[in-house]
Amino acid sequence: MQSESASFFKLLVLLCLTVLCVAQDDFDFFYFVQQWPASYCDTKRSCCYPTTGKPAEDFSIHGLWPNRNDGSWPSNCKKDSSFDESEVSDLIRRMEKDWPSLSCPSSDGVRFWTHEWEKHGTCSLLNQRQYFQTALDLKQKSNLLQVLNDAGISPGDFYSLKSIKDAIEKGVGYTPFVDCNVDQSHNHQLYQVYLCVDSSSLDFIECPVFPHGGGCGSRIEFPSFSSSSHDEF
């Protein structure tokens, strides 16, 4: 009787672990998140340019994040899957350009990419090369800076939140979520743009759910990153 109970208990534990693993990997769509470098830098935490040099005045990738329709998300799904730079060696130049790290101290980006892969990429059902290649291609496909420029929205001025959202929706074809920060002069700034991608990571879709918050007023600043005021960082 004790042997049967022990066997049943082991089976129950194995089943629970299996369900947990499946649930951890399960997701419904991706958030593809891009950030505006001037807004990242224009906060109390400041920023540090990458060791490869100051990034271009363009949106950069923050991450490609698996998410669920109920607002939850999986993370760190494979503890034994570490970032391997050799897997993306032919993508490094594009990653340095389109996915730079602005955190301090200055770095070559590997620490940032490692974090994104281990926390989010391991839950994506993509291998490392597919994960980073997909994000780079989505940035090129969305082309946010050009989309905004085409609508007469350029860095260095204030715009209505509605006009920014409308421009992105018209240019990309889907409704974005816009996240703002507040600078030391208490201006709301365009900080991050979320777009949603289907779980096959091939196409943009309407977001099943938006993140909480956003922190944007009705009129927000699209700060310049080319001005000398940022070169002290």
Rank of each mutant, 00 (worst) to 15 (best):
K78S: 12
D25Y: 10
S46N: 07
Q34S: 05
Y40H: 14
D25V: 05
D26Q: 10
C77T: 06
F27D: 06
D80W: 00
A23D: 10
F32P: 02
D70F: 02
E85M: 14
P66Q: 04
G71H: 03
S39M: 01
V88F: 07
E87C: 06
S75H: 12
Y40S: 05
T43P: 00
P37K: 06
E87I: 02
C47D: 03
Q35A: 13
D90V: 14
C21K: 12
F30W: 00
A23Y: 01
Y49S: 09
Y31S: 00
S75I: 06
V88G: 05
F32S: 03
W36L: 08
N67A: 08
Q24G: 06
E85F: 11
C77M: 10
E85N: 10
P74E: 13
S89D: 15
K44G: 00
K54I: 13
K78T: 08
D42M: 01
K44I: 04
R93I: 11
E85S: 14
I61Y: 00
E87N: 12
K54A: 08
I92K: 14
D58N: 15
N67W: 03
W36M: 04
S86A: 15
N67M: 13
P66W: 01
P50N: 05
G53S: 11
P55D: 12
Y31M: 00
D28A: 04
Y49G: 07
L64Y: 02
N67S: 13
S46C: 00
A38N: 07
P37Y: 07
S89N: 15
W73H: 14
S82C: 06
L64F: 04
C77V: 07
A38S: 15
D25M: 14
N69Y: 02
Q35S: 15
I61P: 06
L64D: 03
N67E: 13
S82Q: 13
L64E: 03
S75V: 06
Q24T: 09
V88S: 02
P55Q: 11
G63H: 09
E85I: 15
R45M: 05
F59I: 01
S72N: 10
C41T: 02
P74I: 14
W36C: 03
T43S: 08
F32W: 06
P55I: 13
F27H: 07
T51Q: 11
K78Q: 12
W36V: 08
G53W: 09
R68K: 15
W65S: 00
D84S: 15
F32I: 04
S75N: 13
P74T: 14
F27G: 06
G71I: 03
D26W: 09
T52K: 11
I61D: 01
N67Q: 14
E85K: 15
T51A: 02
F29N: 06
F27S: 08
F29M: 09
F59W: 13
C47V: 02
E85G: 09
D28G: 09
S81I: 01
A23N: 10
L91F: 09
G53H: 10
R68C: 08
S39C: 03
V33P: 01
S72I: 00
R45N: 04
T43I: 04
D26C: 03
P50H: 03
G63F: 07
C47H: 01
D42Q: 02
P37C: 12
N76A: 14
A56I: 08
D25F: 13
F29E: 05
D42Y: 00
N76K: 11
T43K: 04
S60W: 03
F27L: 12
V33T: 10
S72D: 10
